[in-house]
Design a protein around this nucleic acid. Sequence first.
DNA 1: CTGTCTAGTCCTATTTTAAGACCAGTTCGG
DNA 2: CCGAACTGGTCTTAAAATAGGACTAGACAG
Lengths: 150, 150
Amino acid sequence: MKRTAFAKAECPVARALDAIGDWWSLLIVRDAFDGLRRFGDFQKNLGIAKGMLTTRLRTLVELGVLEQVAASDGSAYQEYVLTRRGHDLFPIVVGLRQWGEAHLFARGEPHSVLLDQAGQAVGQLVLPSKSGKPLGWADTKVRKVAARRR
Amino acid sequence: MKRTAFAKAECPVARALDAIGDWWSLLIVRDAFDGLRRFGDFQKNLGIAKGMLTTRLRTLVELGVLEQVAASDGSAYQEYVLTRRGHDLFPIVVGLRQWGEAHLFARGEPHSVLLDQAGQAVGQLVLPSKSGKPLGWADTKVRKVAARRR
DNA sequence: CTGTCTAGTCCTATTTTAAGACCAGTTCGG
DNA sequence: CCGAACTGGTCTTAAAATAGGACTAGACAG
């Protein structure tokens, strides 16, 4: 049966996963953050089947995460670049990176690292509170949307 | 063909997506953050097929994101609770939530909201730098693992 | 005991994915 | 200017994943 959809869910997490929660979309976005722009670059770097890449890029463009622009090198081809909405995915990609680094690599196993412009490794993502003290899971709760009464 | 695997990738983002980057796993984790613990609770709340839920829970337990413990109500059943590793997924779930809120809901459309213990909406995730100034996408770059020479 | 609840397993139909053949327009080398 | 190679796709096919539901063993409630 068709993959179940959460596009109408009232939970933003579910909608976000419905939009970009597949194996390829965020990897394409990651590569876009790394500066990749052309169909062939994504295809070669990810080893993704061309047909998949075509449908993923189309979906990301429809979502407004990527947009197609004329190639920056003056050729007749097109390039895919991140929009504002795409740039806003940065914390998610960083979060995945930090979780992966912390839990999916053996001690000493080499992996790529995120640096600031001075070449320093960046810190951990934090969720600030009004008081300035970072919030963890235990400090928060979700307020659900009130069930619609009749 | 078999879904392509990134479990050996040197990029932590790719490994993380390989582990938890499917449509259901993070929704299960979200529900666990919301306090759900039992098979039937997850199944009812998500509307997921039981077979899918079984394999997802098994995978999450193997990954060390969830663990099975004896039911807290004294019955003979088991419950699934987040481990330390599971709790560390909090920033990712929050990131998805915030991106979804910002880009996937129409103005005024109701959605669930994340609150701190005082009932205040939480702020945006930030990536701090040494200098204390939050880092954005343009302020960072990825250092790749050096290609292995012979 | 008996009926219901829980937490699954198993089966089937359908959809999605991977992989590669094929193709039209673009660019390059000479 | 011409043929070869590159770019950015489309189409086809086989295998795998998903949705949905039937079925079941053990726990529990009355």
